[in-house]
Design a protein around this nucleic acid. Structure first.
Lengths: 194, 194
DNA sequence: GACGATACGGAACACCGTTCCGTTTAACAA
DNA sequence: TTGTTAAACGGAACGGTGTTCCGTATCGTC
């Protein structure tokens, strides 16, 4: 854990406020979704707007900070699954499942991730930088094992899965997990010359 | 064509402005995307903001009006494909392809369709009302022919396809068509006991 | 040409993310 | 303890949304 001191201030109140803000943001994200107004988060934390923007230069930075640990955990789960699973394809499926679980339980996160809104480019880039290499590794292992057709880049798969998760909360008629399953099923190689 | 007179005004300038507005909106949507500011459209049409909002009570209504003809054409293409195609599954695949082409060529339309933003509920509802029944018909025909696993509602498939199209413009690394193909491939029944 | 209904334009409003700056406060030295 | 100073604070203000409102201009009719 080298992230607890890298941006830490000399002043106790500043450190405390940053923690308070992260907690408040996490709470507001749960109840109102990731797109909740910055003012709501400031109010929840009992803090002014200036304080938010000093600690987190942009909304995207705040969102990244809130979910960093979970994204790191997801990234680290990839190699672990590859070691513990029966086949690379099983590892891939489980990893995607893990990722989908993460996205689906964060109201509006998937939508914001793929919104194309320039405000969230940093968020988009962070997710991609951290997770695409892991996905590539899983994909290549599965391809090497001859379990999948290899015509798909990890980037494309990640975006596709992310897209499928949009709106999965707040709509009981739409089950993103099932569609992602279908996508992964379509990826599987049916037979050498089907 | 009964939509050319259903909301037509008694005044010539009003009718002309509505046409001008539709053309201007279409032009702006092509260059700046569907999320272009209303003011840009008003400026392009050489018209005030009030005029836009009298003819189209909400942004969503304007978008619906601009794309109505194409959505109708898509809806009508469903039964036609079912008649002209070799198998129901082929008809389904072609129809989905048609729909994807439509979405992918309209900057930001897919994103706005699934944004969950209440402002666009009417747009979302219109697409669904018009296209889900068509998709249901195709899906049921393919299921009856034993070509697909039937565990997917048309609503879910439409949302999934729509989601996959988000951001397909403006990112050469992401090919929505390929992912939709994979999804449809995953839908196909491999064998009675695979 | 006059008149009433209709439509027009754009200022004004509410809300957003973000910036700016005068004020407060923590940390430290004397 | 007290004084000094750099850091952090709060929130008004800015620029940009979608939308509303209403005084003004215009069309169709008599």
């Amino acid at each position: 854990m080298n992230d607890s001191d890298e941006g830490a201030s000399r002043r106790k109140d500043a450190r405390r406020n940053k923690e308070t803000l992260l907690d408040a943001a996490a709470a507001v994200f749960v109840t109102s979704g990731v797109e909740a107004p910055v003012r709501d988060i400031a109010a929840e934390a009992g803090v002014g707007l200036g304080t938010i923007y000093r600690h987190f230069p942009t909304r995207a930075d705040l969102i990244i900070a809130v979910y960093r640990h979970q994204v790191e955990a997801c990234a680290e789960a990839g190699p672990a699954l590859l070691r513990s699973s029966a086949t690379p394809h099983a590892a891939l499926a489980q990893w995607i499942d893990h990722f989908v679980d993460f996205l689906v339980t964060k109201h509006g996160l998937a939508a914001v991730l793929q919104s194309g809104n320039a405000d969230f480019d940093a968020l988009h880039a962070y997710f991609l930088d951290r997770l695409v290499p892991v996905c590539t590794q899983l994909l290549e292992a599965a391809a090497a094992a001859g379990e999948i057709r290899s015509a798909l880049q990890a980037y494309e798969l990640m975006r596709g899965v992310g897209n499928l998760c949009i709106g999965a909360d707040s709509d009981p008629r739409y089950d993103a997990r099932r569609l992602v399953e279908l996508l992964i099923a379509g990826l599987r190689l049916p037979a050498p010359r089907g």
